[in-house]
């Protein structure tokens, strides 16, 4: 058992982080907020050229030939900077939809719960999106449609990659909270010197680390129960993390100008993917009985 990142995995994570720092920094994030619904096609192609969408495609098929663990690391980085776009759907379409792997084609999908992200901007939609109704999306960086009818089948890999994005967002929430707690002074000292604030930050980190172990393990085993667990813990880490981060920011956290609300809104949106977390809880409950019967 060597349950830690290999040198290659570290290098891959650092490479994705560097690419995103260069091409999607804070200024780019805020510019995207000011131009809702527009996807940066040049960035999308750059991601394609870097292999982001083709990570799991075999080398014979023009892909990178890596596995779920590496893919999870890349999606975690995307979640960390709130990279917009139907990343999961395009990744899953690589090798099946022409141009998806290269980042030439933007692919979205009817999600298991009936939501469709980026429907207008996408070139290809997987699943029947006829009759999809637009919503005024709570997340300024994710246009949404919803199908009034039923829902499609859920791909566990989509659930896992969403969990990886949540993990990245949770990590970012922890970093922002700690930065603010060190910089902001009240009563003549950094607010991070007060235990009440310290303990919020500590809990942020605990949730991140628990979720990280669950998400990475699910990437290694690809076991449906492990993926369901990863989803629940990553959703919790991202949503509660963004909430606590907002609280640490005080009044600043309630403004449009601070980035905290963007973290929270994206985290909320992702919790609704694949029909929400109830299915995962039911799957894990049933798993208890089946394991006890064995």
């Amino acid at each position: 058992m060597r349950f830690r990142l290999t040198e290659d995995q570290r290098a891959l994570r650092d490479g994705v982080r560097a690419l995103l720092a260069r091409r999607f920094d804070r200024a780019a994030l805020r510019a995207a907020v000011d131009r809702p619904g527009r996807l940066d096609r040049a960035l999308w192609r750059e991601l394609g050229a870097a292999g982001f969408f083709a990570l799991r495609l075999s080398e014979a098929d023009g892909g990178v030939g890596l596995g779920l663990p590496e893919t999870v690391l890349a999606f975690e980085e995307a979640g960390r900077v709130l990279l917009p776009g139907p990343l999961v759907a395009t990744h899953l379409a690589a090798g099946r939809v022409p141009g998806a792997a290269e980042g030439e084609t933007v692919v979205t999908a009817v999600d298991g719960g009936g939501l469709v992200e980026w429907l207008t901007a996408a070139d290809v939609v997987c699943g029947a999106a006829d009759g999809a109704v637009p919503l005024r999306s709570v997340d300024p960086l994710t246009p949404l449609h919803r199908l009034p009818g039923g829902s499609a089948a859920v791909d566990p890999v989509a659930v896992l990659l969403t969990a990886a994005e949540q993990l990245g967002t949770a990590t970012r929430a922890c970093e922002l909270a700690v930065q603010h707690a060190r910089a902001r002074e009240q009563f003549g000292q950094p607010i991070g010197a007060f235990q009440a604030v310290k303990h919020l930050c500590a809990e942020l980190l605990v949730r991140v680390e628990v979720a990280r172990a669950a998400v990475y393990a699910a990437a290694v085993t690809a076991d449906p129960a492990d993926i369901a667990a990863a989803r629940l813990l990553a959703d919790e880490a991202a949503v509660r993390g963004a909430r606590d981060c907002l609280q640490v920011h005080g009044g600043m956290g309630f403004t449009w100008e601070a980035d905290v609300h963007l973290l929270l809104k994206r985290a909320w949106l992702r919790t609704r993917r694949a029909g929400g977390g109830t299915e995962s809880e039911e799957l894990l409950a049933a798993d208890l009985l089946s394991r006890a019967a064995r």
């Binding site: 058992m1 830690r4 172990a213 669950a214 492990d226 208890l288």
Partner: peptide
């Protein structure tokens, strides 16, 4: 659902143990 949530919790704690040990 609470039992399902606890299953997630203890699976994750087991993985965190393996992570810390590694």
């Amino acid at each position: 659902r609470r039992l399902g949530g606890l299953n997630a919790e203890f699976r994750a704690l087991w993985r965190l143990t393996q992570w810390n040990v590694s």
